[in-house]
Design a protein around this nucleic acid. Structure first.
Lengths: 127, 127
DNA sequence: CTCCAACCTTCCAACTGGTGGAAAGTTAAG
DNA sequence: CTTAACTTTCCACCAGTTGGAAGGTTGGAG
């Protein structure tokens, strides 16, 4: 299976799959005579695993950790849970931050009449 | 006023202030004989304005727009409101995305017993 | 058999928003 | 006069891609 079929199968851009090979996150199973990257069942599964983890916002480093646990038959579920819990904490922190920003900005927007006059509480606030 | 005093006044790292000068977002008022960047009242106010806008998550490009409106005596408040509303929409989209991720991940974590056994619903889901 | 499109390769550069460090010049205090 | 604490420029790096150029390969149509 060549790179574009693999990329299509996991719904990632070809460039990204090549990038993951470059940084040795998911290396292809081998190379064809012409030097084309070849993906098999195993490498395709890993690629899909990483694609899903990235969609969950796990960093490349976290994906690397998850992938090594994914491949480790003797992993404990506690290890995986730890990484996922950390990610959950990150998400919650970001949510609190966004909620604050949202409320402050929404307040400013609501106070701004938004007409053709130059008086603007948003600019005034940022001044 | 030299760069470190200016940076301290607006609570930005010196490196960042220099970077903003490099990209011509906020240029210093002038240069000393020795070539040191000099900031005055006007440039310091712009720097503070940008610092606050960045804390609100406005991109450098958005800051550039806001800054030109900030400097424009004839701006309409509608123009400012438009940029702020766009930012608000971005924030809301990000909030929805994070809420989905949070719920899905929290569900997985709650189902994971987190013990020493290798069975893990989180890995299974990502598989 | 030849041609062409659509692949593939590597490498280099750009993006965002900075940050770190090296080498060299400047300034102010003690 | 020394020395610490500034300042300058320049170059490189971080994440996580993406775009493009130059060149090689493959497969199907005519």
């Amino acid at each position: 299976m060549n790179i574009s079929s693999a990329a299509k199968a996991v719904e990632l851009p070809v460039k990204t799959v090549r990038y993951y090979a470059d940084i040795e996150l998911v290396s292809p199973a081998g190379r064809s005579e012409a030097g084309y990257r070849e993906y098999d069942d195993t490498t395709l599964r890993k690629l899909g695993f990483v694609a899903r983890a990235r969609r969950f916002g796990f960093s490349i480093a976290q994906c690397r950790e998850l992938l090594s646990l994914y491949e480790d038959e003797a992993r404990s579920s506690a290890e995986v849970r730890k990484i996922a819990s950390e990610r959950l904490t990150e998400i919650e922190a970001k949510q609190r931050e966004l909620a604050e920003l949202h409320d402050a900005l929404a307040h400013l927007v609501s106070e701004c009449c938004g007409d053709e006059r130059p008086d603007c509480p948003i600019i005034d606030y940022l001044k």
